[in-house]
Design a protein around this nucleic acid. Sequence first.
DNA 1: CTGTTAGCGCGTTCAC
DNA 2: GTGAACGCGCTAACAG
Lengths: 341, 341
Amino acid sequence: MKPTVHDIANLAGVSLSTVDRVLNGRAGVRAPTRKRVQDIIDQLGFVRDPAAVNLAKGRVYTLTFIVPSNDNSFMQALRAEIAEARERGASERVQIVLVTVPAFDAEALGLAIRSAVETGPDGIALVAIDDGHVRAAVSIAQEAGIPVVTLVSDLPGSGRCHFAGIDNEAAGRTAAALIGRFLDGREGSVGIIAGSLGVRDHRERYDGFRQGLGRDFPTLTTLPVIEGLDEPERVHALTARLLADHPDLIGIYSLGAGNRGLIRALAAREAGNPLRVIAHELTPHTRQALADGLIDVILNQDAGHEVRSAIRVLKSRADGQPVIAAQERIRIDIFLKDNLP
Amino acid sequence: MKPTVHDIANLAGVSLSTVDRVLNGRAGVRAPTRKRVQDIIDQLGFVRDPAAVNLAKGRVYTLTFIVPSNDNSFMQALRAEIAEARERGASERVQIVLVTVPAFDAEALGLAIRSAVETGPDGIALVAIDDGHVRAAVSIAQEAGIPVVTLVSDLPGSGRCHFAGIDNEAAGRTAAALIGRFLDGREGSVGIIAGSLGVRDHRERYDGFRQGLGRDFPTLTTLPVIEGLDEPERVHALTARLLADHPDLIGIYSLGAGNRGLIRALAAREAGNPLRVIAHELTPHTRQALADGLIDVILNQDAGHEVRSAIRVLKSRADGQPVIAAQERIRIDIFLKDNLP
DNA sequence: CTGTTAGCGCGTTCAC
DNA sequence: GTGAACGCGCTAACAG
């Protein structure tokens, strides 16, 4: 039988409340008494039953999620995962509030964080934008003792306690290694399409890709980056131009969203030299393109995992418990058409 | 405030025990009373607090894990993960019993399962061997109402309620797609090293690989499979012979364990034509070989995830709750030296 | 058939 | 400083 507070109280010859005080490090216990109780606790290897604790405290974890109202498939999926977690949360004492803010709007995000802090939640999760407004707001949350985890896009050095997302530089390097090996020894140019290099995760992927390709595959030259703002129409126009202007093009790395446009342009292409294409995020569109052979590899981050991880981390932080690090590492999923889930 | 059993009792004008009986579908309630209570439950949208339930029942989930006593890195890691889960389990009401059996010994495994059933655990997890003894034993467990999940290697059609492992055929196809694209258009032969095709997961990887390569990459021919029994020494000798005998060898797929031997043979090789190598399971040895460029890709299954997943599934099964399917899908991790964790 | 009562392991008033 | 008593949401003996 696992030891309980009763056992401790009996063995130490004190009452339950004294044990409780020692356990929670509260004042009102003389040093010798405290030591005696503490010794018994250590000796018994006592561990609190978190379920009983929460029951007694009537604790509910209030978590606020702030995400952009972006219309692309990935953000839709992210919001859907949060909504699902909200449903499940009921039976796990977590109450999730979902707040959406305009995309790419740092000021709006900063304000949303501030007003979330006002409501005094047990934790805040947000898709960060690397900007002063956001940094300042995160600092405020931290000073208010509210743990913050960043989701998808990080904000290092801001006081956020955790990042639930992939290592984007590694993702870029991985894309470079794959496309480089696919085009082993061949000569030609590789196009890069981003949403905006102003966004941190895109920037990191870009840096990782250029670095990896430059280092290991000198026969491939990268073309100047194209910024599609994650908008399918724009991406389509830019990709079409890219294909037309560069007859020596043999590879494309699309590191942002709006891949519907990319896929349309690829499908419309006259059968020319073979083209190796790597894109990010598994959506209905990219999945189909992968199956059709228009895209060779999709790098993906699992939105569901990110949301569940953020919740676990915030809960643990809220009551000062450690987390299982390996469980919270978000993988860079690599999908070929052969290992689609 | 979330409704509780008290609210239901009050509103329905009955006692707590009646509510409890209705909630748990127990007999001893007249139909009209039952209906009245049920209506209130539905109307209130009542959901039981699982923590309180477990507390009141004093429930502890006893789970038995049966794994081979294999000495390779992967099985060691698996056992380590189970041990860690056992530590954590204390505070989550799960008590894990770890049983080891001789590797590749179906009879021993069958006996271990039978005696595990005797102890009446809430669930059993095991690394299956596709064999009659094992099948029969699993049936017995199932008839005893004890849920069984297979770990790493599956046993379809045996009544196991879940498989915590990767899709091995997809893994084989993925290896084929990668090595095929790496060697794009080139002509030559590809060697395959297995542990034993008698083991289901190895067989599936083998089938997937041959199928994928044959379908998409006709310029590559596969050499007859080599069985290294997952023993480093044997794998070493066989690989060395493979390298010596086939000057046109341009790729190797090692789908089993014992990769220390493979790596040694690769390292000792005279610099000849470049060789693309794909192996399974990320261990200290394969990780180093990846960094050194001796191996190009490692396909991996996350032992920690498999263990945690098995526990979650068995717990949910034990009290008839559903699981989050996406969370329990074990990914085929693809590691290049650029995205190592 | 139905209701009462006493816990599960812990936190939290209050008195002493 | 310390302790007794009650309650969190639910189940499990018992009575009736």
